[in-house]
Design a protein around this nucleic acid. Sequence first.
DNA 1: CGCCACTTTGAATTAGCTCAAATTCCGTGG
DNA 2: CCACGGAATTTGAGCTAATTCAAAGTGGCG
Lengths: 262, 262
Amino acid sequence: MLSTTDIDTSTEVAHNISAAAAKLSIDEAMCQRASQAIANNLQLLNGLFAPPRRMVHAGDLIYQTGEHFGNLYVLNSGFFKVVNLSLDGREQVVGLKFRGDWLGFDGIANSRYTCDAVAMDTGEVWILRYDTVLDACARQPELMNLLHVAMSREIARDRDSLMSVCTLSADARVADFLRYWAESLARRGMRTDQITLRMTRAEIGNYLGMTLETVSRALSRLARNQLIHFAEKGRRDIQIPHVGALAEFVHRSLAPAATVLQ
Amino acid sequence: MLSTTDIDTSTEVAHNISAAAAKLSIDEAMCQRASQAIANNLQLLNGLFAPPRRMVHAGDLIYQTGEHFGNLYVLNSGFFKVVNLSLDGREQVVGLKFRGDWLGFDGIANSRYTCDAVAMDTGEVWILRYDTVLDACARQPELMNLLHVAMSREIARDRDSLMSVCTLSADARVADFLRYWAESLARRGMRTDQITLRMTRAEIGNYLGMTLETVSRALSRLARNQLIHFAEKGRRDIQIPHVGALAEFVHRSLAPAATVLQ
DNA sequence: CGCCACTTTGAATTAGCTCAAATTCCGTGG
DNA sequence: CCACGGAATTTGAGCTAATTCAAAGTGGCG
């Protein structure tokens, strides 16, 4: 476990806790609402812009580091990864995107995209010209809010990723990754008992800041402890009998000693 | 070094490289422009809103996890940290903020702030009601752009943080942290040859995903190798003879073997 | 001036990495 | 439909970077 600095937060701690709880607890009703909200948002965008669509397949680039910025993208279906590239050749998966998510915000600041956006499966991307969106925003407060909420979510999610990488053990990080993936599906009305990872162990490891071997070992340990099961054939399909158990495991793995994986 | 997945980016690689280069190279002229741009932005905001100001001191909370969202904050002076809290009590420094930066974007998505924003020194914060900003945005494209650019920057910066933590060794991470801090000062027209860290080793370690001892050792190694010097008295003040040398060290530490710190 | 928080440094331990080999999977072409 | 080959995965063994634990040193502030 890594160090946690002691930062003064004496006041309103109880308030904090209950608010933080809101980050986590995921139930059926919430998922339905989330799914409906995503559908509504897509409908709103469709009504406003009737945007051109692009079908993509695994490996297709939506946009690329250094490319001139001009479009934002909204994902109607599919699974996508965002890959940061550094000068010295490092590649880092910094985000995963699903139906209803936006792509391209990183390009606004410098009129160039600062990462690659890559499809991990067949999907449909809606293309919105940023200029057009801005114009519409000025007239449609609802749209402006939608846009800001999307950016705000991305900021909050990125921070959670950093916290994961900085504070969790490898096993917990993998468990948390699966929980996040399942939860992302749940919020979009998809089943979560059986999920198909669209990423290799190497990609997962890259995203989580560990080697592919460590990912493999962590998955094996989770399976040995019944937190997940592999489908008979193919190790890309993973059964998650109870998503809550993964969250619980992450929590448990923070406790000083005692009950961890075998 | 951690794994880097092989992701297909065969096309336009040269384009990528030069674009990625733009992320890094920092020169005098660029800093002057950046500093001027920040001043202009602050002036614009002041003209539009004449926002109420708040003087803060080290340790003061600007806002707190769970608190109802209503304001955005613009930093006129000072140094600030953003701290993510998790249900289970983990604390993670997820961002550092300086003059011209905004605080509070994380609150837009769920009408509650999802982290704490804390002053690390004396400073002045401008308080903007989000409603008011939205109204003004609808009439002032320039303001809307300003806001989006600020959010976009934050997204891009968060990704860079994640990449640092995931791909760099402890020594390189500390060096990169110092480089980032110095560069942030440079972009605001402040001197960078002698900087004062406003964070304890524990806080730096938390931010970088390592223990305070590792931070201390890394700083000692950097000093031993003349990349930095400690002021005669007090280990909070650090001299950086040549910021570029830090970037070069980070780069060098990525090379398979050879020349690393002693 | 003395306390307390922060920092440094050392020694021992360990989580996760590297290297290596065996196995499984999947797409392709016969 | 099946055989083949390359890519992905698993697992083991040894190693190393970073952690933990401990103790001494230092500095700022009341």
